[in-house]
Design a protein around this nucleic acid. Structure first.
Lengths: 337, 337
DNA sequence: TTGAAAGCGCTAACAC
DNA sequence: GTGTTAGCGCTTTCAA
C-alpha cells in the first residue's frame, strides 16, 4: 500500500484551512466561498489527490464493490458471463472483487467469508459442483448482503436468480434429434446436484416421453468433459444396441464424443448425430461443425449484475424475488441431420 | 453494505470486556488469560464475527488486495492469465480487484485511478491497444505501488515484466515448417504496432533468412481472426504461386485458414501445412488437430503474480527490475507434416 | 463561510 | 492481564 498518497489533511495543512473545508471543497459543497473552493480543488488536482476509498467506504458504510465467485475462469461460458458483468458494473460505477472456487466447496466458503469481510455490497455467484449445503450463502443473506445466483443456482436461498432456459434448450435439442429420425439418444450430463443438470435432463426426458420414446437408463451417463467422453462414448458405440445420437451438456463433451465417433468411422450425421450445449469457438472450429444449443453468457452476466444493482439500490423495499430466464437458441450445424 | 455485521465493540459490550481485550483474543495474543481468550473466541465463532477488512486495511495501511487490468476477458489467453494469477493470489492470501480496459485508453486510465483510490498494494496489467502514453502508470510508481506488466508491456515505465517468448516461438514454428519441406510459407499477423506482432514476424523472417528462403511480401498478410482468414486464405490458395504452408499469429486465424484449405480440397498436411499460435481448446477440437505454438497463459499469470508479490514483500529493498520470459512450446499435431 | 469534533472498526502504545 | 486512548482518512453535525 502506498505511503506517499496525499490526504485531505495534507491539503488542509498546506492551505491553512480545516479538513472539513477541504472535504467540502472536494465534494463541491454549495456553502463554501468560491475562492477557497477553487484553491482547494486546484491544489488537489496539481498534487494528484485521490480519495481513499477505504476510508470513504468505512464512513459511508457502503463500499461500491461487488463480489463475484465463479467456479473457473478459463471457460468460455464463465468468461463470457464475467465480461457481461463488467459491462454493467462499469456503467453503474461498481468495482469487482473476483474469486474463483475451482468447484471446491471449501474454496467457495472461504471466498464468501472474504467477501463479507470485504464489506462488498452484493454478491454474484454460480455455485461449485461440490457444493451441497448452503450455510455460507445464508450468511450473506443474514448479513443483509444481496446475492444473485446465475447459471448454477441455489434454490434453498431466497434470492434473485438468472438462469439459462436449460429445460427449453434441452427439450428443443432433443426434439430436433427425434424429428430428424434419431431414436436412441444418449445423454451425457453433469452430476445431478446441479440444477442445470436436472433441468437439462428434464428437457431431454420430456422430449422423449412427448414422442413416445422409452427411457433407457444405459443411455444416460454422468460425464461432462472431453477426456472422459472419449472412452465412455467409444464403449457405447461398440455395444450391440448402440445409440444413434448424443446430446451433451456442454461442447467439450460433445466434441469428445465427436472424436470417438470419427475414430470408429461412423458417418456423421448419417449414422450418428451429436449435439452440444454452449456454442463456444470450438463448435465452429470442429469438423464437422458442431450443432449446439447457444447460450449467451454475456446476457447472463449483464442480467445478473443488473438485478443485483437494482436490489442494492432498493434495499429497503419489498424483497420480491425476481428470476430472469435467458433464452437459448438451437444452432444447427453439421453434426445433426 | 451490511448493517447487521457484528463488530469487536459488540462482542466487548456483550462480554463486558474492553475492545482491546477482544482484539487481542481474536488475534490470539499471548498476554491474555486463557479463560477470557476462549470466551471471546467462542462468542465470536457463535455469532459469526468477521473482521472488517476495510478497517483493518486502514489501520495497517495495507490492503492485501491486488489490482488487475486486462483488455478483455472473453479471450483464451487473457482468461488463462487470470486463472494463473488467481492460483497464486489465493495461495499468497491476496484478493483480486478486476478491471477491464476493452483496449480503451480512457478506460485504462480510469481503472488505474480506481486502483490507486482502492489502496491496492500492487497492480498487474497488459496495456490497451490504444495506449501510447503512460502518465497513469507513472502515477502508480509515484504512489509507490508496485506494477508488473505482462504480455503487452510498457517499456517506458521502470517495472517488472512478464512476456511470452514470441520471437523464439515463431522462429521455431517457421523452422519446423521449413524442415518438413515447406518453401512458400505464408504469415498472417496482427497490426504491427503491437510488440507481439513485431516479435513474431521477426521470428518468421529470421527463420526464412537463416534457411536462405527469400521473403515474399505477398505471403505476409495483416489478418488475425477466423472470419477474415477464410477469404484471404482462399484467394491465396487459388493463386498461381500458392503457398505450401501457413503460419498464423493465433489459433482462430489458423482455423479459418484450415477451413478454407479443406474447402478447396487440399490435402493436409501433404499439400498444405498450417500452424497456429496459442493452443486453446479449439486446436484439439479441430480436425485435423492443429499444430500450434503453445503459450501458457497460466504460466504468464502465475509468474506475473509471483513477481508482484515478491516486490510487495520486499518493498524497501533494491528496486531491481526482473523480467521473466515464458517459453513457448511447439505442439506438433496433424496440420503439419 | 468556516472550524471543531465525533465516529466508522480496528490495532497498539501506554497505563495500571 | 486488562483497559484507555489515539489515530488510520473521511464525512457530517453542531457551533461559531
Amino acid at each position: 500500500m502506498p505511503n506517499s498518497q496525499i490526504t485531505i489533511k495534507d491539503i488542509a495543512k498546506a492551505l491553512n484551512v480545516s479538513v472539513s473545508t477541504v472535504s467540502r471543497a472536494l465534494n463541491d459543497s454549495p456553502d463554501l466561498s468560491g475562492a477557497t473552493k477553487q484553491q482547494v480543488q486546484e491544489y488537489a488536482r496539481q498534487h494528484h489527490y485521490k480519495p481513499n476509498l477505504l476510508a470513504l467506504s468505512m464512513k459511508k458504510r457502503e463500499s461500491k464493490t461487488i463480489g463475484v465467485i465463479v467456479p473457473q475462469i478459463i471457460h468460455h461460458f464463465f468468461s463470457s458471463v464475467l465480461e457481461g458483468m463488467m459491462d454493467v458494473a462499469e456503467r453503474e460505477g461498481f468495482n469487482v472483487l473476483l474469486f474463483r472456487s475451482r468447484d471446491s466447496f471449501e474454496k467457495e466458503q472461504h471466498s464468501v467469508q472474504q467477501l463479507i469481510s470485504s464489506q462488498v455490497c452484493g454478491v454474484l455467484t454460480s455455485i461449485a459442483k461440490e457444493t451441497t449445503h448452503y450455510e455460507h450463502f445464508q450468511e450473506l443473506v443474514d448479513n443483509n448482503i444481496p446475492v444473485v445466483f446465475f447459471d448454477r443456482i441455489c434454490v434453498d436461498i431466497p434470492s434473485n436468480r438468472v438462469v439459462i432456459d436449460d429445460y427449453a434448450g434441452a427439450l428443443a435439442a432433443t426434439e430436433y434429434l427425434i424429428k430428424t429420425g434419431c431414436h436412441r439418444i444418449a445423454f451425457f450430463c453433469s452430476p445431478l446436484n446441479l440444477e442445470i443438470s436436472k433441468n437439462r435432463r428434464g428437457g431431454y426426458l420430456d422430449a422423449l416421453s412427448k414422442h413416445g420414446i422409452p427411457v433407457d437408463k444405459d443411455l444416460i451417463k454422468i460425464c461432462d468433459n472431453y477426456d472422459e467422453a472419449i472412452p465412455v462414448a467409444t464403449e457405447m458405440l461398440q455395444s450391440e444396441n448402440r445409440p444413434d445420437a448424443f446430446f451433451a451438456v456442454n461442447d467439450e463433451t460433445a466434441l469428445g464424443i465427436l472424436h470417438a465417433t470419427k475414430h470408429l468411422h461412423f458417418k456423421i450425421p448419417e449414422e450418428i448425430s451429436i449435439c452440444g450445449f454452449t456454442d463456444g469457438f470450438a463448435a465452429i472450429a470442429s469438423d464437422p461443425q458442431l450443432t449446439t444449443v447457444g447460450q449467451s453468457g454475456q446476457d447472463v452476466g449483464r442480467s445478473a449484475m443488473e438485478l443485483l444493482v437494482e436490489k442494492i439500490r432498493h434495499k429497503g423495499d419489498q424483497p420480491l424475488i425476481k428470476n430472469k430466464i435467458i433464452k437459448t437458441k438451437l444452432i444447427v450445424r453439421e453434426t445433426t441431420r
